[in-house]
Write a protein that binds this DNA or RNA. Structure first.
Length: 187
DNA sequence: GGGGAGATTATCT
DNA sequence: GATAATCTCCCCG
């Protein structure tokens, strides 16, 4: 498997969000194939970088190729990959492929479809927390491997936001059984 | 299997 | 003091 290089994230955030579908994300000994992402950039009212730098979003304004991890609803962690110009891709779902037993233990379920099918779930499954905020994606415990083939993609509106809710910036692998939610049927 | 309430806290206004 | 890029459980049918 070929590792993803630094050039990968120095592109338009929507290009990266699409290119990530099919990419393998490893964290320690656990990981899987990315099947769902969302894109955010500073012109987007739903983005954390909208309105300029703050203590929380500082990593988004730093170098690309790093993890932006934030805490939400007082309960969950969410993992993002920083791209250029204070933009980032939210990793929303994985198809589990490595370290299933460890992920099942952390999640409290053996059902592979419940391990990583949501941004909060996959952080819990992999053991990602705020201590990993700002870490490089090219160094352990992170590793990213290029996809072999480009999978079929579906686009839709993002989930769980109230601002700019109409923008089609959610991307998923068509027909995957490991999405956080199905995409609406066309028509 | 679908809808709604509640959990629980860092961050910003 | 309100809000938030979520998840799970409980109730209803």
């Amino acid at each position: 498997m070929k590792a993803v290089g630094p050039r990968f994230f120095r592109r338009d955030v929507d290009i990266v969000a699409r290119a990530l579908i099919g990419t393998t994300l490893m964290f320690g000994a656990s990981g899987g194939i990315i099947v769902e992402t969302e894109s955010y950039d500073p012109t987007d009212p739903a983005a954390h970088s909208y309105g300029g730098p703050t203590k929380r979003n500082a990593v988004m304004f730093g170098a690309s190729g790093h993890a932006y991890v934030y805490f939400i609803y007082g309960v969950h962690w969410c993992l993002n990959f920083v791209c250029r110009d204070a933009s980032a891709v939210l990793i929303r779902a994985l198809e589990p492929t490595h370290g299933l037993a460890a992920m099942a233990r952390r999640r409290g379920t053996d059902d592979p479809r419940k391990l990583c099918s949501g941004p909060g779930k996959l952080c819990e499954a992999l053991g990602i927390t705020g201590e990993h905020n700002g870490r490089s994606l090219y160094a352990p415990p992170f590793a990213l491997y290029r996809r072999m083939k480009e999978p079929p993609l579906t686009t839709g509106v993002r989930i769980g936001i109230t601002k700019a809710a109409h923008l089609p910036r959610r991307y998923g692998q068509t027909g995957s059984r490991f999405l956080s939610r199905p995409f609406p049927e066309p028509g």
